[in-house]
């Protein structure tokens, strides 16, 4: 069992949520106090956070697959070591986030099972394939760049364990982002062929990356309560705009073209992008992205083929505990 013994007594969720407690909770939130695992919290707050943190954890783990696809083919030993270390970091983030989710009362096994059963989501971006080495640079630059944009505000999230996890995760993501950009810079300063792979990768990843910030504000389901609870500090569209504004000059420096002919810079300096194809986003969320089935199949295979190992570890731990008890009794 991975669940920690915290005072998440069922009593809290059994309808004792009176208005006074909820009001008091909101006062704490408004005062920018951190909510800790043993504190009282509304059941909906717990549920929202469990969903968000576990989805975040699943994304880190599924996110290992597209980049892991290039570990065995990285073009130099330095790149191989850096990529392996990066994917290992993502795994560490996943572990860290599952631990943060567990403080809300769900075990890692339950959360992972929900993902493997297709009941829990992970970031739609990982349902796109990594076809060339330039995709590894692009993921670091744009996907990790977008993740940082999303996660920096989460360092001030009202839930303490999540906020603290995000501080560490953001530091590593920032390193990954620079590493990805450096791969792109090397390709763009390389041969025409290399630069062409960089442009091709940007063309394929640009729109899916913009979709990472979620649906437009007008249609976002979760934003209102998340904002009131200070889980979310900026809207999807605000974060998306920040990302675009930060990324356009980076693409220009690389000498790459953002695949949006309609993009313009307005008087106050913001880069205005064209309409996003939300049909594609919905299709990918519905399981119809290019790699949804492959990603789920890979995670299910690892889980199924590893079952005997986990069983062995559990059986051994039980035997050892039994022996220690027997020894102590002698």
């Amino acid at each position: 069992m991975y669940t920690q013994a915290l005072n998440t007594a069922e009593a809290d969720d059994r309808g004792l949520e009176d208005a006074a407690r909820a009001a008091q909770f909101q006062v704490r939130i408004d005062a920018e106090e951190r909510i800790e695992p043993n504190d009282w919290m509304p059941a909906a707050y717990r549920k929202t956070l469990t969903r968000q943190i576990s989805q975040h954890a699943h994304s880190e783990i599924v996110g290992m697959l597209p980049e892991g696809n290039w570990i065995t083919r990285a073009p130099t030993l330095r790149r191989k070591a850096a990529l392996l270390a990066k994917v290992q970091d993502e795994c560490g983030h996943g572990l860290y986030l599952y631990a943060a989710a567990e403080t809300l009362g769900s075990s890692r096994e339950e959360l992972v099972d929900a993902m493997l059963a297709g009941k829990a989501k992970y970031s739609s971006i990982f349902n796109y394939p990594t076809l060339t080495w330039a995709d590894i640079g692009t993921i670091g630059w744009l996907v990790d760049g977008a993740a940082i944009m999303n996660q920096i505000p989460l360092c001030r999230c009202s839930y303490g364990p999540y906020a603290r996890a995000m501080i560490r995760v953001c530091k590593e993501e920032s390193f990954h982002q620079r590493q990805g950009y450096e791969i792109m810079l090397t390709l763009c300063r390389g041969s025409d062929e290399q630069k062409a792979t960089a442009q091709d990768a940007l063309n394929r990843w640009w729109w899916p990356v913009l979709m990472m910030f979620g649906p437009p504000d007008a249609t976002s389901q979760h934003s209102d309560t998340s904002t009131r609870w200070k889980i979310k500090r900026f809207s999807n569209d605000e974060l998306r705009q920040k990302f675009v504004d930060a990324t356009v000059p980076q693409a220009q420096y690389l000498g790459l073209t953002i695949p949006d002919p309609g993009m313009t810079q307005d008087a106050d300096g913001h880069w205005r992008y064209s309409e996003i194809d939300w049909t594609e986003f919905k299709q990918v969320l519905a399981g119809n992205g290019p790699c949804n089935r492959d990603r789920m199949a890979a995670r299910r295979k690892a889980h199924a083929e590893g079952a005997w190992v986990r069983e062995a570890a559990a059986a051994y731990a039980a035997k050892r505990a039994q022996r220690q008890t027997a020894q102590a009794a002698e």
């Binding site: 290992m64 697959l65 994917v87 795994c91 996943g94 572990l95 083929e305 986990r310």
Partner: peptide
């Protein structure tokens, strides 16, 4: 990497 029996 990405396919082990447990994240650890």
């Amino acid at each position: 990497c990405g396919h082990a029996p447990m994240l650890e």
